[in-house]
């Protein structure tokens, strides 16, 4: 059984404002039957003042989805639309004294229904706000824009967290690699230049074709220099891993493949791939050539 707070249970057992709302003039439908959560939020807005006079919901979903919907209607009644627009998923979760991490997506759904209803009232197409991103999670139709937004507002750093907040990656899991890419991009952005003047999108990770131009700029290293350089880069990253009680060691360097062992807490960590990915990124930036960072266990499989 979930570790629901008393407040969540109370709102589930005695949902406020459940059922259709007569003379609603704003409706937001969110969710999908496939993932087992769907919410219709209905608002009655005073056209003169933009104040939400009444709110109600209909929800198909688990206990926390129903509790989040109920909480949402209580939070926004009496607010103006502009005030309501600022209600975040964390506000909903906090109102309920917290939600289990696996259920945070219920609060996200609440916030989205609210934004959809407000857009509906204003005659806007809410979906447009999110139409730009690449579709990441096909199972739940979640695009990169939503993931980026949720990662930024909640300071997420793992695929698991992204799944808990957005459901992305919660079904077939084949998009985990793409989610990791989004995470790596945002984490890099944050740690490097939290500058506001950046007008261009985050730098696209150097892809393989960049090799030619990069290597032409840098003097070619001898084998020994190259190996020392790789050692140096890995060495400089170890403190970061050690802070998280992990570590890394180089086992061998064969051509473009660098084989390493992740140790300590890094072993079997769900973020192993993301860790390797970000170290690899650092390696090809500093080396100026494309290399692959692989777990040593893959040495046997090498041709």
């Amino acid at each position: 059984m979930w570790d629901y707070t008393d407040k969540v249970k109370e709102h589930f057992f005695n949902p406020r404002n459940a059922g259709p709302l007569e003379d609603a003039n704003a409706v937001g439908d969110i969710g999908s039957i496939q993932c087992g959560d769907a919410l219709r939020l209905m608002l009655k807005v005073d056209p003169a003042t933009d104040v939400i006079l009444d709110a109600s919901f209909q929800t198909f979903g688990c206990g926390s989805a129903i509790a989040s919907s109920s909480a949402l209607t209580e939070i926004i009644k009496g607010m103006t639309l502009d005030e309501a627009y600022k209600v975040s998923n964390q506000d909903i979760a906090e109102y309920l004294d917290g939600l289990p991490p696996e259920k945070m997506h219920c609060s996200v759904m609440g916030r989205e229904a609210l934004q959809a209803a407000i857009a509906n009232y204003r005659g806007e197409e809410w979906k447009d706000a999110h139409a730009e991103g690449e579709l990441i999670c096909k199972c739940y139709a979640i695009d990169s824009a939503l993931i980026e937004d949720v990662v930024r507002t909640n300071n997420l750093s793992t695929v698991e967290e992204v799944t808990h907040y957005t459901k992305a990656g919660g079904a077939c899991a084949s998009c985990h690699e793409k989610i990791e890419e989004v995470l790596v991009r945002i984490l890099k952005e944050n740690s490097k230049t939290p500058s506001f003047e950046k007008t261009e999108p985050a730098p696209v990770p150097a892809a393989a074709p960049a090799t030619a131009s990069a290597s032409s700029e840098k003097p070619k290293l001898t084998n020994l220099q190259r190996m020392r350089k790789i050692e140096e880069i890995i060495e400089s990253l170890r403190p970061m891993l050690q802070r998280d009680h992990g570590d890394i060691e180089i086992v061998d360097i064969i051509g473009k493949n660098i084989y390493v062992n992740l140790k300590g807490a890094c072993m079997g960590c769900a973020l192993e791939a993301a860790t390797l990915g970000s170290i690899q990124q650092k390696l090809f930036e500093d080396l100026g050539e494309y290399v692959r960072l692989l777990p040593a266990s893959m040495m046997e499989m090498a041709p």
């Binding site: 949902p15 059922g19 439908d29 769907a38 919410l39 219709r40 209909q58 929800t59 198909f60 989205e112």
Partner: peptide, 24 residues
């Protein structure tokens, strides 16, 4: 009673159409 797929006395007609929520 609180399911958007359910009406007064039964499922809403053609539930998939009547309630087709967006997931942004």
């Amino acid at each position: 009673k609180i399911s958007p797929y359910w009406g007064e006395a039964g499922p809403v007609e053609d539930p998939a159409k009547m309630f087709a929520p967006a997931y942004g």
